[in-house]
Design a protein around this nucleic acid. Structure first.
Length: 812
DNA sequence: CTAGGGTTAG
């Protein structure tokens, strides 16, 4: 059909073309050629061009531009070579085509060749090259071109300056962009304003973008379909619904309400501001069903917590036979992930395969994410392995997916593979891997990621910084945690909570509570997690009154319903403080079934307060909840032995043995120059064992001089006093400390890792006098659930050597 | 005859 029409048109044309004899009819034909090209009818244009008996330089340049603009660079190049009389414009037209396609090598070579052949680049040439630098993020090249424009005085041209502003803004150099923009006292046009506005938006400066929009209107410059999406994005980022609605009215008045770009930006703005109703209205008012706006609507529903609505909107799109694009699936997959709807997930997956969208990286990334979030890591890995063109988001989805399922070591492995694969981490994956490092207390690997983020300027990202606060706090480096926290310009509730939890974990309960008060004073509202940190601080600091106060305040003042974690902290606080009755009452009052953490807290308190009845109850619950956990058996047995009931203690141990529950032997380890040195209780396998034992004896002597009394309650069996004391003295962590004192230089921190409960990492500064140092040992805090074997595997991943002793201990 | 700005995903 199309072919027929085009033939007829050409037949008609060729008679016209044959009549070209005068100069004016050549101009008309050139114009006709240009019009055809503007309509994208390139084949017809080519026939016209071929039939023309006479051509001038305009004819050649027009045809060349036509090829260049439609991406037919081979044809453009051929025509360029055939052009009898070339001019700077001919060169610029060709260069423009190469720049548009993003062919940097070819573009820059042509730019060089043009000058070599004696043609002078114009502001047009510079504009094209600058655009290339902007889309490709070639910052240094762009700076060179800026210098070139200054040298050739093209830096006064509004097109060139606008391109430069765009370049600097896209390369995240907002200050430079602003400088150029401000320097243009006059002559800013609507494109310049729009470029600057979008620059602010892109760089996350929503207020700047809105101010820019105001400035533009004050100068009487009309906004258009390019301007509105930018300012709407800023309203969305700032949740400024009021201003967004005002912009909407400008759009209607300006007659841009029917533009799909503007409409989808409106939908996006309304959904991000939480006004789903207005968003729906915009979608409903549209003349054509535009997939982009529907996508934005689906995203809005997901974001506002209506995944079912998102799914039903998708079903509607499908029923209407709307043309879905690669953005539709990620949004709807998100809703599936939220609902943990495996059945619909699989349906959607097969639909994706059927429609051929699985080859889109964007879609497979979303599939990885969805499968990971519905706790099917196997499928996530499968999709990942089948993804042909992996980008940093593919890796991120898998890494966060592993972390989401608690497989932090797996996350670390994938991260290492990603680095080997040559993919540079961005702020998302850095934040994610830092959280995993924090979870595993892998300080040195975390610090490597930190160093890398400083190098690549990712340390300006809030989520990266929040993860860093957690990492350092979790590894006992409070001073670093505080330093990172102070460096954050705009903190959110997560930044504060990371600090509050971190200080609480490190036994700095008072500071932790002070941070909370500061946070509230600065106008940030606490959330569910903040209260876990607060109550944790209270329970570990023994602040019973404060704890009671916060526990009631979270419901009363902040409307947060306490979850199992809050109850666990409260029961821990009450029982530790000896308020066993109140703890038991709270336990019975809980609306949810108490989980293992709560029972363990109670059991541990029973150990201190020697409450046998409650201990039996707690242990019984734990035997059912976590049958393979040795801890309740050991604790119960220890309670019996602490009150002299040796027979009962032994029977619990027999029960444990008969159930086949094994107690993981306690180990402590320390890293030195890329090696792991591990110690068990009374462990003599280390090469320098003799020296280490001498050091322990020296330590014990010195601290006894300053009043240290070993706490015999914590010895495990009914052995005689002397042996008990010896067992305590040669505890793995004391051996590790002695090793640290012998090998870590004075003033440097000694970091010790432990595998058993309380699962600890503790830090001490290597001081010559060890008194305060041992005081630290007796108040170390539980920070993570890392197991020794996992740690070793992590360490091998970091390509460090594992010491032979450590490996032997591990194998035994 | 050649040049500049925009929406949806982790």
């Amino acid at each position: 059909m199309f072919k027929f029409v085009s033939r007829r048109a050409c037949g008609y044309l060729s008679t016209e073309i044959r009549n070209i004899s005068t100069k004016s009819s050549l101009i008309d034909t050139n114009k006709y050629l240009s019009d055809l090209l503007k309509l994208g009818r390139i084949d017809e244009a080519r026939e016209v061009f071929d039939e023309m008996p006479k051509r001038d330089k305009f004819t050649y340049n027009t045809m060349l531009t036509g090829y260049a603009n439609s991406g037919k660079l081979v044809e453009a190049r051929r025509l360029f070579d055939d052009t009898p009389t070339k001019s700077a414009i001919t060169w610029s037209s060709l260069i423009s085509g190469y720049c548009k396609m993003g062919w940097e090598t070819e573009s820059f070579y042509l730019f060089y060749e043009m000058q070599y052949e004696g043609y002078k680049p114009s502001q047009f040439t510079l504009g094209s090259i600058l655009r290339l630098c902007s889309i490709k993020g070639l910052f240094s090249r762009g700076e060179q071109m800026h210098c070139y424009s200054v040298k050739t005085s093209f830096d006064m041209d509004v097109f060139v300056i606008t391109s430069l502003i765009d370049l600097y803004a896209k390369c995240l150099r907002l200050v430079e962009a602003e400088y150029l923009f401000r320097g243009m006292s006059k002559g800013k046009n609507h494109v310049t304003w729009t470029t600057m506005l979008n620059g602010y938006s892109l760089n996350g400066d929503a207020v700047g973008a809105i101010e820019c929009f105001r400035g533009m209107r004050a100068e009487g410059i009309e906004a258009n379909q390019y301007t509105f999406p930018g300012v709407l994005a800023a309203c969305a980022a700032d949740s400024d619904l009021g201003f967004g609605a005002q912009v909407h009215s400008c759009i209607v008045h300006g007659g841009f309400g029917a533009n799909v770009f503007v409409q989808s930006a409106l939908v996006d703005m309304y959904t991000k501001c939480g006004d789903l109703c207005s968003a729906r209205k915009v979608v409903g008012s549209m003349e054509f069903d535009d997939a982009i706006s529907w996508n934005a609507m689906i995203v809005g529903y997901v974001r506002q917590g209506f995944p079912e609505k998102a799914l039903s909107l998708f079903t509607k799109m499908h029923e209407k036979n709307m043309e879905l694009d690669e953005f539709t699936y990620p949004s709807v997959l998100n809703s599936i992930a939220l609902m943990k709807d495996m059945k619909n997930g699989k349906c959607l997956h097969s639909l994706i395969i059927k429609s051929g969208f699985e080859s889109y990286t964007l879609v497979s990334n979303a599939l990885i994410d969805m499968y990971a979030k519905i706790n099917n890591l196997d499928c996530a890995f499968k999709i990942f392995n089948f993804t042909a063109e992996k980008d940093v988001i593919s890796w991120t989805s898998l890494i966060t997916g592993c972390a989401h399922n608690g497989c932090h070591l797996e996350a670390l492995k994938v991260f290492c593979k990603m680095r080997l694969d040559g993919t540079d981490p961005d702020r998302f994956v850095s934040a994610s891997i830092l959280s995993s490092c924090a979870e595993l207390a892998l300080l040195d690997i975390g610090q490597q990621v930190h160093a890398n983020s400083v190098k690549t300027a990712l340390d300006t990202s809030l989520s990266v910084n929040n993860s860093l606060v957690s990492l350092y706090a979790n590894c006992g480096c409070l001073e670093y945690a505080k330093k990172v926290f102070n460096s954050i310009e705009i903190r959110n509730v997560i930044s504060w909570t990371a600090l509050i939890v971190g200080y609480a974990q490190n036994g700095k309960g008072i500071e932790s509570l002070q941070f909370y008060e500061k946070m509230v004073a600065s106008g940030i509202k606490p959330d569910y997690i903040t209260f876990i940190g607060l109550l944790f601080a209270c329970s570990h600091g023994g602040f019973i009154e404060r704890g009671r106060y916060y526990f009631s305040s979270m419901v009363k003042d902040h409307g947060i319903k306490p979850g199992p974690d809050h109850y666990a902290c409260m029961i821990d606080l009450l029982s530790r403080s000896g308020e066993m009755q109140e703890a038991e009452d709270l336990l019975n009052k809980m609306p949810v079934e108490p989980d293992a953490t709560i029972w363990k807290a109670l059991l541990a308190a029973c150990r201190v307060h020697k409450n046998i009845d409650l201990a039996k109850k707690a242990a019984k619950a734990l035997f059912e909840l976590e049958p393979q956990d040795a801890a309740p058996y050991v604790l119960l047995s220890n309670i019996y032995s602490s009150i002299g009931k040796w027979e009962e203690a032994a029977s619990v141990r027999r029960l444990m043995k008969s159930k086949g529950v094994g107690k993981e032997p306690g180990r402590s380890w320390i890293e030195m120059n890329g090696k792991v040195h591990a110690f068990m209780s009374e462990d003599r396998s280390h090469l320098n064992a003799e020296e280490i034992y001498l050091k322990v004896d020296e330590m014990i002597m010195k601290i006894k001089e300053v009043g240290y009394v070993p706490d015999m309650n914590f010895a495990l069996h009914d052995i005689n006093e002397e042996n008990k004391e010896r067992g305590l003295a040669y505890h793995g962590e004391k051996l590790a400390v002695a090793f640290g004192l012998l090998n870590v230089s004075i003033g440097a921190p000694i970091r010790i890792y432990k595998n058993i409960r309380p699962l600890i990492l503790f830090t001490a500064i290597n001081a010559t006098w060890m008194g305060p140092f041992f005081a630290k040992l007796s108040c170390c805090w539980c920070i993570n659930r890392m197991r020794f074997s996992e740690y070793l595997r992590a360490w091998t991943l970091g390509k460090a050597e594992v010491s032979e002793q450590a490996a032997d201990i591990f194998d035994s």
